[in-house]
């Protein structure tokens, strides 16, 4: 037993090292003037400690406003993706129909077609119907972007749910819609929350659409907002500030996402068991 425990803690230690090694330097550099990072050979402790990068961020960009935009866009898009994706997955794996493989496969083909060539047609569409600078201009494309993964993962998960559960549901007189809402969704919460995390973070980090479809400075998302940090000169790159801003939004984000996940799962599974 000692041996097994030792192996696990060794593994966990290596995993922590893996995740935090690069982060350590980012944190370090974020507390130094930008020039200090150019120390050769590198040192693994701060040579000149300062908070100026962190305070500088708020002078450069309205970070809170950008974070609010990101939260609105990413939350709405995650919700819609989960809803539409799980519905489609239910159609594919429970209702079943001819051509379901074709449906799933075209979903990925379209989903992974190079984004660079998609920008212009979508931009033109939004520009024609005056949807630029509107949260929907990001929410809708992001939702579509999340659909392939969500649908696939949920379809795989639904297929593994034992058939007798579904049969029992129909004996209980639940309709198709009722089975989806009352049986499948509660049962698949772990999978749903997993894709929710993956989708949410992916939407949060998206850059090109957010840059192109939101030309107004007030509508920037965090990722684009951070790229607006600059120095006095075109070439100058105040990257201590950039890193500080990235850490300031990412680390709370990760903790928030994780706590929310735990809360949702425990809350809903409890409800489902009782009901």
């Amino acid at each position: 037993m000692m041996n097994r425990n030792f192996k696990i803690y060794l593994g966990v230690g290596l995993m922590a090292l893996y995740c935090l090694f690069p982060i350590y330097f980012l944190v370090l550099y974020s507390f130094e003037p930008s020039e200090a990072a150019y120390h050769s050979p590198p040192v693994f402790y701060p040579i000149a400690f300062t908070f100026s990068n962190y305070t500088g961020v708020f002078k450069s960009i309205p970070l809170a406003r950008y974070a609010l935009n990101s939260i609105i866009v990413a939350t709405s898009a995650t919700f819609l993706t989960l809803l539409f994706g799980s519905m489609a997955a239910y159609g594919v794996s429970v209702l079943k129909f001819r051509g379901r493989d074709l449906f799933l496969n075209s979903l990925i083909l379209l989903g992974f077609f190079p984004a660079a060539t998609m920008i212009f047609p979508i931009y033109k569409m939004f520009s024609d119907i005056n949807l630029l600078n509107n949260y929907l201009a990001l929410i809708l494309p992001y939702t579509v972007g999340g659909l392939p993964l969500t649908t696939w993962v949920m379809a795989t998960y639904f297929e593994n749910i034992p058939k007798d559960l579904l049969d029992a549901a129909s004996v209980d007189g639940l309709s198709i819609g009722g089975t989806y809402a009352k049986i499948m969704i509660p049962l698949s919460l772990p999978a749903l929350s997993t894709v929710a995390i993956l989708d949410f973070i992916a939407f949060w980090n998206e850059f090109i659409y957010a840059l192109t479809f939101m030309p107004d400075s007030n509508m920037r998302t965090v990722t684009v907002g951070i790229s607006l940090i600059s120095g006095r000169f075109t070439y100058q790159y105040p990257w201590g500030q950039i890193i500080a801003a990235a850490l300031m939004v990412t680390i709370p984000l990760v903790i928030m996402v994780f706590v929310a996940q735990e809360k949702i799962i425990s809350g809903l599974t409890a409800g489902a068991v009782k009901g």
Binding site: F120, Y123, K124, S127, I208, L211, T212, P215
Partner: peptide, 9 residues
Amino acid sequence: QMFVTASMS
């Protein structure tokens, strides 16, 4: 890219 995309439309 922002300017090019906008001008294309």
